[in-house]
Write a protein that binds this DNA or RNA. Structure first.
Length: 572
RNA sequence: AGGGACGUAGCUCAGCGGAUAGAGCGGUGGCCUUCGGAGCCAAGGGUCGGGGGUUCAAAUCCCUCCGUUCCUACCA
């Protein structure tokens, strides 16, 4: 039941100037101190009707015939306000949630015309250094957007691309070759991708006193592309170290890919494509043999597609990969989750592909930079927040909190709760920000469990569970819905009603933070309810009604958190 | 220098054309004889960066200035 739409249809009988769809778009939620659920601002009608908005609102109030699901229609100034009947709403939404359970809000692919096939690529790491906080944000956004889209009946394919070749890779290889003494990660007992990263930082340190190193790295790249065996062996070894380390981190973050692509596998096909499209117009070969896409007519900087020495660039393989993904998945839409520092790059890539006659729907899901209190992260200098490190930190903090509260919990249970609560804190802290905006990462806030945090929401879930555990009463929908009349109960019910709408918006606009905001709001309302309404009581009918209400809240919290990649706990 | 993004409470952020601009943190004052205090309630705190414009209505759209930042690599 979509009440907003119903109200729009109702209004449309008396508003012929605009379509019912336009009416629906105008309907809004009134400020919270006004005791109504929906509101229609009548301003746009005042010109055509040549009457004051106040008068029009009053006229409409009188003309409208109140359907049974509306308890009150009232003009307040230039707004016509509607209140949904609490009994009708409670009955409808609680029944719906309870019956559908964890499928509440889920759109079945049978119910839409055509489910879309969507490929989403993230986090596409470079194999020369370990994952850092930026990758964490990337992964969290990628996962939650995938979950959200999947929940509204799209078919999602999560893929990863490893940028495992190129000048940056050669830099860490060169440093290792020169100063690594053939050591192995296990010799120093460090995680293998961190071991590789050390040499990338070392390269950049040494570069300060020896500018020739850049040239040496380029020579090495050249050798790599010419299949020099020694270079390839070194590369393979170091890449395996990096990949192994990533796999461990991905595992901790619960990421799984339908497909993994490697730049080293596909760059040649990219070169082939580029070499066949040189037309001296859009694609030009310049004196030193570099191939350049001329994009000035499209208000974009020109883009080099192939270096003068014939070696490939990031875009070289991306051109082929776009086509390859189409072959592999026959997608309707292709999403790239990549930071906003590459906004121009993706405009260039998409334009080049368009010029090549490749016209698929491609989206750069661009997200903002993560800053540290001391400024920007600099991976070349090793000034980053390491991904493994931060995961470990939130885990330990959660563990400390749990041990503070329980003395006799077994090790396994402590481990499980610490992992789930720690991840909730970190994930929620990062996802609650609008993806497109930069934000500053404060370590102590990311591991906070109070206020607007993941654990706060988990806590609500656990509290509800605790109440449910205390009663023998069967929860069902056979209750007296009119008993749910406390202010906090009514607010909670309306919150629950909003879930599918929020879910859809979060998914379609690729904005998981909308779900975060919603869950916080829902949780706050539940907590307010919790302190002012006793669930377990001798009034059995009231108890039954409230049990259903909190059970439904619990269901929605679980669905919402799971979509964000956060697990729930029955006991914290 | 050109192009993009962002400037909202002391701090971190929501809100992005509609009624008196919200939340968390911090600070202040309350709530421990009721279901888990990782909680709740109250008061306080704002010329929504400055200035112009469009509109019945602007934090929200447009222009301009200031500030921060990203891009403009044969880097990624």
């Amino acid at each position: 039941m979509n009440y907003k739409k119903q109200i729009a249809i109702l209004l449309s009988d008396f508003i012929k100037e605009i379509t019912p769809q336009e009416v629906e778009k105008l309907i809004e939620l009134p400020p919270k101190d006004i005791d109504f659920d929906y509101s229609f601002p009548v301003f746009i009608l005042s010109k055509v009707k040549k009457k004051s908005p106040q008068q029009i609102a009053l006229d409409l109030e009188i003309k409208l015939k109140k359907p049974e699901y509306i308890s009150k229609i009232k003009a307040i100034g230039p707004y016509l306000n509607f209140k949904i009947d609490r009994f009708v709403l409670a009955k409808y939404i609680l029944t719906e949630i309870f019956n559908r359970g964890e499928l509440f809000g889920k759109i079945d692919s049978k119910d839409i015309e055509k489910p879309l096939r969507i490929v989403i690529e993230y986090p596409a790491p470079n194999t020369n250094k370990p994952l850092h906080l930026g990758h964490i944000r990337n992964v969290f956004i990628g996962q939650s957007v995938s979950n959200l889209l999947r929940f509204i009946a799209n078919e999602i394919f999560e893929v990863n691309l490893y940028n495992d070749k190129g000048i940056h890779i050669c830099k860490s290889m060169l440093a290792y070759q020169k100063w690594g003494n053939n050591k192995k990660p296990e010799d120093e007992n460090i995680k293998s991708d961190h071991f590789v990263g050390k040499y990338y930082v070392l390269f950049n340190e040494k570069l300060k006193n020896d500018p020739n190193l850049n040239q040496e790295a380029e020579n090495m790249l050249h050798k790599w592309e010419n299949n020099d065996p020694k270079t390839r062996t070194l590369w393979k070894m170091m890449n395996n170290w990096a990949k192994q380390g990533f796999d461990e981190s991905f595992d901790k973050l619960g990421v799984k890919f339908s497909q993994e692509y490697f730049e080293s596998d596909i760059y040649k096909k990219g070169k082939e494509i580029i070499n066949t499209v040189i037309d001296g117009k859009n694609f030009e070969k310049v004196e030193n043999n570099a191939v350049i896409a001329r994009l000035e007519n499209y208000n974009l900087p020109d883009k080099v597609l192939l270096r003068g020495d014939g070696t490939s660039l990031y875009i070289t393989q991306d051109i082929y990969l776009a086509k390859k993904k189409k072959e592999d998945f026959n997608y309707d839409k292709s999403i790239y989750v990549v930071g906003n520092e590459q906004n121009t790059y993706f405009k260039q890539l998409f334009k080049v592909l368009e010029l090549l006659g490749f016209s698929e729907e491609m989206i750069h899901l661009s997200y903002g930079m993560v800053y540290l209190p001391e400024g920007k992260m600099k991976s070349r200098e090793g000034q980053t927040v390491d991904a493994d490190d931060i995961i470990e930190k939130v885990y330990n903090l959660a563990k400390k909190e749990i041990e503070k509260r329980y003395i006799d919990l077994n090790e396994e249970e402590i481990e499980k709760r610490s992992r789930i609560i720690g991840q909730a804190a970190l994930r929620f802290y990062i996802l609650k920000y609008d993806p497109k905006k930069d934000f500053t990462y404060y370590p102590d806030k990311s591991i906070s469990f109070e206020g607007d945090t993941g654990p706060y929401i988990q806590y609500v879930y656990a509290r509800i569970q605790s109440i449910i555990n205390k009663t023998e009463v069967e929860i069902d929908i056979d209750i007296d819905f009119s008993l749910l009349k406390h202010k906090t109960e009514k607010e909670l019910i309306f919150n629950l009603y909003q879930f599918p709408e929020i879910l859809k918006e979060a998914a379609e606009s690729y904005k998981p933070h909308l779900m975060c905001q919603y869950l916080l709001n829902l949780s706050q309302h539940l907590n307010s309810f919790y302190v002012s309404c006793q669930v377990i009581s001798s009034e059995i009918n009231l108890q039954k009604a409230r049990l259903l209400l909190i059970r439904c809240t619990q269901i929605v919290i679980k669905i919402g958190l799971n979509l964000l990649g956060i697990e729930i706990l029955e006991q914290m």
